[in-house]
Every structure is written in C-alpha cells, then in structure tokens.
Nucleic acid binder design. Structure first.
Lengths: 146, 146
DNA sequence: CTAGGAACTAGAGCGAGGTCTAGATCAAGT
DNA sequence: ACTTGATCTAGACCTCGCTCTAGTTCCTAG
C-alpha cells in the first residue's frame, strides 16, 4: 500500500515517466485531456513538479487503463474526484461497472486461452509425428488447394 | 469440436456475420486484408458463398482477435496456412507466442482486478459510514483544494 | 413487371490513444 | 560563456481496426 517511493520530493516529468511506465508525451497528453485530478505544480521556470499524490493517481490510471478502461471514463472519474466529496456513490458505480467488465474480460480470455492451448497441442502432436494436417485445418479439410 | 452448424450449404455474408459476430463490413475488410486462408467462393452473380471451413476459420480469427492478436499476426498465420504444410513449426511458434501473451494479460488483469476490488471495498465502506475521504484519495490527502 | 432488400466495389472517414515535430526555454556541468 | 540535455507549448501526424458512403447490381416475393 506504500507509495512507490515514499519521498516527499516532487518529481520531474521524466522521473514520473520512469516510475509509471507512461511516456513523457503521454503524461502531458493525459494532463491536457483532464485526466489528472488537480493541476500539476510548476517550478519558477515552468517545469512540472509531480507530488507523490499525483504519482499515486497516475499509477491508478495505469492500472485502470491496463484493464481496458477508456480514457473517457478515466476522465469522468478524475472529474468526480476533483469535485470533491459527495459523489462517492457515482465513483463507486463507475469502478463497479469497470470491475464487472474486467471479470468478463478475464472469462473471455480464459476461454480463448483454452482454444489456443488446444490448437497448440494439436500442432505439437503433428510435429511430434511427421504428419501434417488435421480436422481443424482448412487447407487439409479441403485437401490441397481449396 | 463440432462446427457451429454442420450444414454443407454455403452461407451468405449476412449469415456469416450473424454466426461470427463480425459485421459484413468487417468480413469484407478481413478478406481484402488477406486474413482468410483462401478466396471465398462466389455465386454466378458475384455474391460470396462461405463454406463451413471458412466459417470455422473466421471463428478462430474471432477468438484470436478477442484475445488481442493484431490483424497483422492473423494475416501472417493465414499466410502460413495458405502456403500449405511444411511450416507447422512456424505456425506453432506464432500461436505459442500469442498464448504466452494471453497468459500474461490474464495475470495483469487479475492484478488490476484486485486493485479495483480493493478500491471498491474502500468506497463501499465509506458509503456505509457517512464519512468521505481516505488514505488513497488525492483530494483528501492534500486536504481541500490541492 | 416491379419493388425492396441484400450484396457488390472502391475508397473516404472515424475514434481511440497516443507519438512526434518544431522551435524555444531552462538548468547544470566545465 | 558554452554545451548538453531535459522540458516547454501547440499542433500535426500516425496506427489500428473497423465503419460508412455512393452508386450499382442481384435476387426473391407479390
């Protein structure tokens, strides 16, 4: 539950890119798109200084993105958080909906996995013998050219 | 292992769309892109007639796509199959690589799932009490406006 | 015969999610 | 002072995976 690095020092965009796995381009892009909860602090010279809080949020974003949440939803979530307390129910709903999509996706992937595993095993077996072809193989079912 | 419908009758593009879940547009698009193993038969009038073999292949494509295989890989796989026996090892390699990516993706998703589940539980708890905020919540960590 | 729906082709268009460029500025080392 | 490298902004550009349009032709039912 700890932050990636529990330092209070603000980080540069490059450092945040490293820590989050997002490119610096993507970080600026996310900011423009309103995916961050608050405006990022700047140095006198105009460079971004990310706080641990910013980084935490970004890490959450990365997780949500990795699980297929579209940027639009992420933006909506950010907006809810930005507008402070009072809308927790809405936030929960958003997360909950996403959670269900993730479940469904895992299910689907597991199904795909078993199909693929089956095909892999068929091929492996074929290669073990010298024979090519098989029931599932279109080129063989039709025999020669289709 | 049975075909969706074991009829020898060839199907129209619309029927195939229904059976595969792909749109007719997508079906034509896939064909143009060379994602099919063989050229689809045509009626005298030029309409496509899909055989059970074609449909089987498309169903495999759908599964592979659903598990994130890019069209380019699908195309390559189709090419291998098209060029007949002798390259089973390559096909296996392609599938195997994909299988690993699927495994990884499932892992990643499961991780995301638990993170999300945790956040959901935090929210749910907050809503059960009347209190808003929490450790993870950026707006609260900074307190008030950031 | 006629109407209507399904399919045809070629190619333009689109939404998502970034990536990259140009040209300028900032900051640190020598 | 000078060089080097990281950042800055605005906006153009890109890939992927379809989707839609236009204009035409096929075919089946009445």
């Amino acid at each position: 539950m700890a932050t990636v690095e529990t330092s209070a020092e603000p980080l540069s965009i490059g450092e945040v890119a490293e820590r989050t796995g997002l490119s610096v381009h993507a970080l600026r892009f996310y900011e423009r798109e309103g995916l961050l909860v608050g405006p990022v602090q700047r140095t006198a010279g105009g460079r971004r200084r990310y706080t641990a809080v910013d980084v935490d949020w970004l890490l959450i974003c990365v997780k949500l993105r990795a699980s297929g949440m579209p940027l639009a939803d992420l933006k909506q979530f950010a907006e809810l958080v930005r507008h402070g307390p009072g809308n927790e129910a809405e936030r929960l709903q958003l997360l909950d909906a996403h959670q269900q999509r993730v479940e469904a996706q895992i299910q689907a992937l597991e199904e795909c996995r078993s199909v693929i595993a089956w095909k892999v095993s068929v091929y492996t077996e074929h290669l073990a013998r010298g024979e090519a072809g098989g029931l599932w193989d279109p080129t063989v079912r039709g025999n020669g050219e289709r």
